[in-house]
Amino acid sequence: MSKKLTYQIVVLFLLAILLSILINNLSINLSRSGLQLSFSWLLRPASFALAENPLPYSPSDTYAWALFMGWLNSLKVILSSLILATFIGVFIGIVRTVGNSVLGFLAAIYITLIRQTPLLLQLMFWYFVAFLGLKDSIFMPIKGMISISNKGIEFLGLSLSSEFSALLFGLSVFTGAYIAEVVRGGILSVSRGQWEAFRSLGFSEINGLFKIIIPQALPAIIPGLTSQYLNLAKNSTLAIAVGYSDIYAINDTVINQTGRTIESFIILLSSFFLLNLLISNLMEVINKITLNSKKI
């Protein structure tokens, strides 16, 4: 018992020494550059423009407001990618498990292409090739309803910038490949007997899949889905590569302007902490709902 205590005191002591050295260095470095830690600059005007602002914003607004816009932009792209990625992932996951062989083969190619190449490269492809590559030629699959050009996507009056669209598609297609594997694993975790059971009851394949198999697969799917959603949120910070003003990109601009590295880093981390909390709680609620509906 006393031996354990000694070990812990030694660990604590070493950690305290390390931390005090680091903090000492930091304060020396900060005082040399004349930037004492402070957050009051947050209330000064940001004086940079934003390409996208979900709420009214002008360069005369404060840094704090600009950062908040970034946070909202992050939230916007995360939530919409999350929905699109889920659709892609569920569809591909089902196709890969129960689809016909040609579709299954295509799905397998999609998954290896997406998983064995860097996300950053994929995002650049979506932005520079898929959207900016369109020049100003407008691509209209369904006349009047949707139009796609290098300005982005117009969909029934809703207009999405090309930066947002590239990020949305890049993140969704990427995360979809991972969600597909989660869904596949979940479907395969349901015993073969359940398939035979619904077939013998006269259910069609699709009907049985959605009414019998998927509800049973959900408890196995949701934890994997949650971690994919959290990954998606983290990956959304690559927005800076396509010039979308998410929380990380705006932090980057702020640091370049003010030199407030430490403070911005703290803000970045806490905004992320908040985003993570939001997603995990959301998933917790979904998890509870599915568990409850299972009991009935």
Binding site: N235, Y248, F265, L268, L269
Partner: peptide, 11 residues
């Protein structure tokens, strides 16, 4: 594990 990689690299 809660932090994006780019934030760590930037750090």
């Amino acid at each position: 594990r809660a932090v994006p990689l780019i934030a760590v690299l930037f750090f």
